[in-house]
Each structure stands twice: as structure tokens, then as C-alpha cells.
Design a protein around this nucleic acid. Structure first.
Length: 357
DNA sequence: AACCCGTGGAT
DNA sequence: TATCCAAGGGT
């Protein structure tokens, strides 16, 4: 459903810029930043992540890695530790790979849209954000904010998470883009969506664009934008055996095509269903390390973590080994090194509940 | 194209 | 409590 009213489009672009100049008070550490490295860093951190959640991570990364060279030369483990808790860990992996790629090629951040887009972890949105903010190139960003604003204002019923909807949003956003000040326009669009045209309870009464907004006029604020995807939640049960021997503990880095890649964990017993404590204690791994009825075996309370489409529930079982053993892919590491390794959120819930390991 | 990948705040 | 969803990208 293409939008073909030129007057309304001009009204939109003019009002968005006017709102930005007169009313936009939103402040963030990376605003007005012109260093493409720092802009890139902020954009990767902010992918599907709230500004309030990402800001502290951004500050820590910039502080620890002031240039792309610093990041490129850092050790994987150190960078993942700094990313720990932020989620979507493929972002961290791609961030490091791209930093090393840039550093290897002279350390100069790419300047062409196509070259920025070619970086791992950089898609349509992020490439447009970088080249518009850093170099003022005319590429329109389309994020959740922009899609919502456009769907509501222009009355677009095409699902914004489908191929047709994305295509339509990109062409419309590019058409509306102020080609003289693309960086400011893009910033205006996102800030307007985040602070005025919010997902729930948008501030229509004080909106500068209210006189020509389709959704407001037709009472479709809560119906737009349209999405087609529904997330399904699957349950998983993870029981962790924390096997210590002297001053060390057995851990492992997750590498399977699954959640939490590149994060560490203890000895995992996963089940497709909830296990009762007797069932759990019957497990071969438990019986192997805690033969007989072992009164020293400590079972924690139940922990649970909700991911975007999975819910992980489980417990932690502490057992002390009397001799060093070979356990599959798990390695024995000193307890004091635990704090330097990135663990899953589920495990960190448990670790934070302990005084010492 | 459909599905997968985290975490936390708001309602 | 359940649901939504946030400066998306990869496969």
C-alpha cells in the first residue's frame, strides 16, 4: 500500500525536523559523536536493546577500548566478559571480528555505505545509522521507532516485520529523508518514536504532527503498526552440577548452535521436562560423582530465566570431588579465575546468590 | 521466508 | 502473571 500524498509527506518531514529543533531534549553519550568507531560501537550495543540498558555498557567499552585498535587487540575472553549480561552474544563475536578486520586493513573505519554494510554484525539499519551520523550521508534508518511512526502517521497496514512491510518502510523513509541533514533527520525520527509516538500510550495530545496523523484521526493508535509474528515460548530444564576439586571447579564454554554461545557453564544436565529431586539424583552424572547417598550433596532452590522465546528453569547441585577426574569437554579451572569468565545469565543468578563458590 | 538469538523494564 | 518489545542481524 504505497503512500502517494506529496503534501502530507512534506508536512511530515518538515514537522519532524521542527519537533527535533524545538522540543527534542533526549540526551545520550554518543549523540553528536563523529568518531565512526564509537558510533558503530553504540549502534551494535543498542541493537534490540534499550538505551537505559546499553548506556553503561557503551561507557565501559569506550573507556576500555578507546579505538578500534584497542578492541581488535583485546582477548576474546576479556571482551565477552565486558559484554556479559547484555544478551545476543553473536553481536559481541561479530563486533570483535569486524574490529580485527578493520585493524588488519589499516585501522581506518570504512566510509562507503556498502563497505560498512559488509562488516559482520552490521545490517541495513546499522549501516545507515553509521554513515548518516558520522559522515552525513543520505541513508535513512528504519528501526522499530521509525516503522511505528510511519505506520501510524501514514496508516500503513502492511505488517512491518514482513518482507513487503520492510521494503515499503525503507522506500518511504528514504523518500522522507532530509537529504541535506540526514543525520539529524534520522536522529529526529528515532527520538520522536521513542519519546512521543511510543508503542503504548503515545503522547498524541501534545504531538506536533497530530493534525495529519492517520492513526489518530481514525482511532487506530492501538492497531498500528501491524505485526505478523507471534513468539512461542518453549520450556527447557537445566540442572547444573558444580563439581569442585580443591580450589578449582569444572566449567565449559558453550559452542553448540544454541543459546548462550561463547558463554561458560558448569556441568550441564539438560532435560525436556522438569525433574524431581529424586529423579535428578538418579542421573548417571550425579551418581558418578556422588556415589551412594551423598549427604554432602547440596541442591539449590529453583531458578528460572525467561529468554526471548525460551524459558529455562533448573537447579544447581554442588558436589566436592575427592580426586581430579576427566569429564568430557569440561576443564578444571581455579575458582579465582571464574570472575574473569563470562557466564550465562541463568548461572549468574545463582552465583550472585552465593557468598563464595 | 521463517526462525533463532538475551535481557530487563513497562503495562 | 503474561505479554510486549527495545537504535536488528544471521542463517
Amino acid at each position: 500500500m504505497p503512500v502517494n500524498n506529496k503534501t502530507v509527506k512534506q508536512y511530515f518531514s518538515q514537522k519532524i525536523v521542527e519537533w527535533h529543533k524545538k522540543h527534542n531534549k533526549r540526551k545520550m553519550p554518543w549523540k553528536e559523536e563523529k568518531d565512526p568507531y564509537k558510533i558503530w560501537l553504540s549502534e551494535i550495543i543498542l541493537q534490540q536493546t534499550r538505551v537505559e540498558q546499553g548506556t553503561a555498557y557503551y561507557n565501559r567499552f569506550v573507556n576500555q577500548y578507546p579505538t578500534v585498535k584497542h578492541l581488535a587487540e583485546a582477548k576474546d575472553e576479556e571482551v565477552f566478559k565486558l559484554w556479559e549480561g547484555l544478551g545476543y552474544y553473536a553481536r559481541c563475536k561479530n563486533l570483535l571480528a569486524s574490529a580485527r578486520f578493520i585493524n588488519k586493513n589499516g585501522g581506518i573505519f570504512p566510509q562507503k555505505y556498502e563497505d560498512v554494510l559488509a562488516l559482520k554484525g552490521v545490517g541495513n539499519y546499522t549501516a545507515a545509522a553509521i554513515v548518516s551520523f558520522a559522515y552525513n550521508q543520505p541513508y535513512a534508518v528504519v528501526d522499530g521507532n521509525v516503522s511505528r511512526v510511519l505506520a501510524r502517521f501514514f496508516g500503513i497496514k502492511t505488517a512491518i516485520d514482513g518482507t513487503a512491510g520492510k521494503k515499503l518502510m525503507h522506500s518511504l523513509a528514504h523518500e522522507l529523508l532530509n537529504k541535506k541533514q540526514p543525520g539529524k533527520f534520522n536522529q529526529a525520527m528515532m527520538d520522536f518514536g521513542a519519546t512521543i509516538c511510543k508503542p503504548k500510550l503515545p503522547l498524541c495530545a501534545s504531538c506536533l504532527l497530530q493534525s495529519k496523523c492517520f492513526a489518530l484521526k481514525h482511532h487506530k493508535i492501538n492497531e498500528l503498526p501491524v505485526k505478523e509474528k507471534k513468539t512461542t515460548l518453549t520450556n527447557r530444564w537445566m540442572y547444573y552440577l558444580i563439581a569442585t576439586y580443591k580450589n578449582g571447579v569444572y566449567i565449559h564454554k558453550r559452542t553448540a548452535k544454541d543459546i548462550w554461545q561463547n558463554l561458560h557453564e558448569f556441568i550441564l544436565i539438560e532435560s525436556g521436562k522438569k525433574l524431581s529431586e529424586p529423579q535428578l539424583l538418579q542421573h548417571p552424572l550425579i551418581k558418578k560423582f556422588a556415589p551412594g547417598s551423598n549427604p554432602a550433596l547440596k541442591v539449590s532452590k529453583e531458578f528460572s530465566q525467561k529468554l526471548s522465546h525460551q524459558r529455562v528453569t533448573g537447579k544447581f547441585i554442588q558436589v566436592t570431588l575427592l580426586k581430579k577426574t576427566t569429564i568430557g569437554d569440561y576443564e578444571w579451572v581455579p575458582k579465582k579465575s571464574i570472575k574473569d569468565k563470562a557466564f550465562t545469565g541463568f548461572i549468574n543468578q545463582y552465583l550472585k546468590s552465593l557468598k563464595t563458590l
